[in-house]
Amino acid sequence: MNENKFQDKIDSERKIEPKDWMPEAYRKHLIRQISQHAHSEIIGMQPEGNWISRAPSLRAKMILLAKVQDEAGHGLYLYSACETLGVSRQELIQQLHDGKAKYSSIFNYPTLSWADMGAIGWLVDGAAIVNQVSLQRTSYGPYSRGMIKICKEESFHQRQGYEIMAEMASGTPEQKEMAQDALNRFWWPSIMMFGPHDGDSPRTGNAMKWKIKRQTNDELRQSFIDKTVHQAEIIGLTIPDPDLKWNEERGHYDFGKMDWDEFWDVVNGKGPCNKQRLDHHKKAHIDGKWVREAAKAYSKKQKDLIIN
């Protein structure tokens, strides 16, 4: 009964709000997806934060700082959206620390050169944007509103990355080589950010039925690849996929096989930086404990002052 009414609402494109009835599985799916998204924004600050103090110019440094600060903001918007589903921020952080909640695997790769700041902005934010633009139409109101806000802020992220790549690709041979190397390392993990093929993604069915997701992993991946090929061409870089070619009939680019064994290895903790990323997050959380306690004590003191 409730279930039918809920589905009718979804089918007629009305948003679900926090106080509305929803199936438990819908709530669970959202908590998993939104918290994973939030954790990705927060953990994603680390590979870029690595280069703030070594940015090649003051301009580059200010831009990178603003970009990383935006990602912190995105994390907070998403934690807020997730909390409307009845889970506390503390629980969410705990799930991350216990390894029960995941974050995007892409952030488990190291950032070895300045060109990686270009590759991340261009490809990683680029892929995230394709996903997030689609999620603006997700059926859960708070998630949808968060996505709209995030998308407005993301557009500079991709441009600043592409600008770095374009600049390096037209620089000295060494600089161009750094740019190409960054593209080589980040290309495959970036297109795997969209997740497994639709046929290997057991939760896609419900997510599409409930309109949590509006496009499947494969559709989103294809749209990202179609957009990006030309961008690589005009800055003179080569996408590291010999099978990449335009398919007139499909109206899309065909592309090579992704290495899903590597993908799952990294998801399951065997990536180059998994331990480092999580350890850093735990340490920052523990180091900040006294600040949270002091803030709490201060607010209690204020309240006591009012009462007396």
Binding site: L76, Y77, S80, R89, R145, G146, K149, R292, A295, K296, Y298, S299, Q302
Partner: peptide, 9 residues
């Protein structure tokens, strides 16, 4: 209304 924040005071 734009959203919310956590804060102790």
């Amino acid at each position: 209304h734009v959203g919310n924040v956590h804060a102790s005071d």
